[in-house]
Write a protein that binds this DNA or RNA. Structure first.
Lengths: 102, 102
DNA sequence: CCGTAACATGCCTTGACGGGTATATAACCA
DNA sequence: TGGTTATATACCCGTCAAGGCATGTTACGG
């Protein structure tokens, strides 16, 4: 599954937002999201298989944390689109400069 | 519909990628994507309603172009996640500095 | 005014996905 | 070892969205 498809799910976005602060166990996320444990585990599986999170075992718990890779991918994909508003700024600048040099 | 949900669709990503180069009519996009015209029109509707593209009329054609707003939103959403790999760099720097000062 | 070109919409079907309940699996504890 | 905690899987159901076909709608061209 692609990064954007994975993050399209609101529940999964809440998970990554939660993991942004600190890593968390499945139980922590269940409490935080107010969803059933199986539902959370399924979302975590999707996130894991897409490489957005990784898990390590601590006792019976599985501690999940964010992984940078896919977010960097998304950042890279977004890059060419940034010219949409930087070019816009350029146009504004030109406009201002034209006004400044009569 | 949210920006991420809109862009989760591969077809819609192909559309915005195509529009990155230049604006295009519906017919242009139909040729470019090899999809049926109604399918393309429906995707364009979704993109339009989410503010990712705008359309202007030229004869019987509708010329579509990208709109910066939602992409900036996405960029903003992504911002806190950038610390995932910049922090990573910091850690690397610290590691290197520790090596440099024995 | 009529035919046609370029899009948009409606309807229908199908497939995928999310959520829940019940159950398997794994690791700790007494 | 037996029980308990923490998480993963299996199965089922409802929903929703994407695609195709057919059909409206709008703007030109003669």
């Amino acid at each position: 599954m692609d990064v954007l498809e994975v993050l399209a799910e609101p529940a999964r976005r809440r998970i990554v937002d939660a993991l942004l602060t600190r890593e968390a166990s499945v139980g922590d996320l269940v409490s935080a999201l107010g969803m059933s444990q199986p539902a959370v585990s399924k979302h975590l599986r999707v996130l894991r298989e897409a490489g957005l999170v990784s898990a390590r075992a601590h006792a019976q718990q599985r501690i999940y944390r964010l992984e940078p890779g896919p977010f960097r991918e998304l950042d890279a994909w977004l890059t060419p689109f940034r010219s949409l508003w930087t070019r816009h700024l350029d146009a504004l600048e030109r406009h201002l400069l034209e006004g400044e040099t009569p």
